[in-house]
Amino acid sequence: MNNIIVYCEIEDGILADVSLELLTKGRKLADELKCELEAVVISNEVEGIEKVILPYGVDTLFLAQEERLYPYLTLPHTSILTKLLSDEKPQIALFGATSIGRDLAPRIASALRCGLTADCTSLEIGEHRDKKQKKDYKDLLLQIRPAFGGNIIATIINPETRPQMATVREGVMKKEIYAPNYKGKVNILDTSKYINEEDFIVKILERHIEKKKIDIKNSHIIVSGGYGVGSKENFELLFELADVLGGDVGGSRAAVDAGFIPHERQVGQTGITVRPHLYIACGISGAVQHRAGMEESAMIISINKDAEAPINNIADYAIIGDVGDVLPKMIKYYKKNAK
């Protein structure tokens, strides 16, 4: 009762990074609230999954394992969690802001009639005073997220309903083992008590999941291009520079929409958030939702023909020039000067 529960995602027997990040955050919040941390895995049978999860400081791991529970389907996962959350009555329930988490969490929140905040970038514990009702709330989950295209940062609370539900973006929180030999217990759920045949009316006919995803999040150097790069061919220059510098290539939403670069590489509000040591923005004007995804980069270089481009305001170096001229020079002088 009144614990924190984290929904853990599995793909091909491997726990998602975002789930480990949530467990790490969940443990910190549990210590602050002096409650237990619980995790739930719903999938086919995955051997030794508890050895991965418990060291994150998990006191109870709920396992619902059955062949047909993997790959993920909305309805059976919703049924299991709705009942589990009703029975266990946690105060906080956390999900990854992933294809799965963002499909699942709202359905559960609707069934439980409780508040849900999407795409949080930070979670804290805090208090709140409702001035109108003269009511004080303690130990609330403060759910912090960008909104309005990244132009505002909102702090959302759910004063009255439990659990306080949130989805959290991948890569915004760190993952850290709490104690390698942490003593938690495993609670195996009898799935027949949670799901019925009707939960399986949606069928998966075909599925292609890339084994190794493009993941520029962990790159220290990102060369990123916008609509101003002009074409898919011109993006080759960005790949070339990224290659010599040992970095990776990203793009703005406009570049993705124009088909210059796949969505997996999109940086910004609706893409991923990156904070590399060096971010080179090529032909990117610097729309707010793009900046939301990269402005915490340690150093920003912009290359833009337009001296007035907003990106120049946050750039450490603004090179006024054509991407097609500047990039070959950067490659050339890097090769000449690097030891």
Binding site: G115, L116, L142, T155, I156, N158, P159
Partner: peptide, 10 residues
């Protein structure tokens, strides 16, 4: 159930 506690302009 969700309330906006605070909004900060970026």
């Amino acid at each position: 159930p969700t309330k906006v506690k605070k909004v900060t302009n970026v």
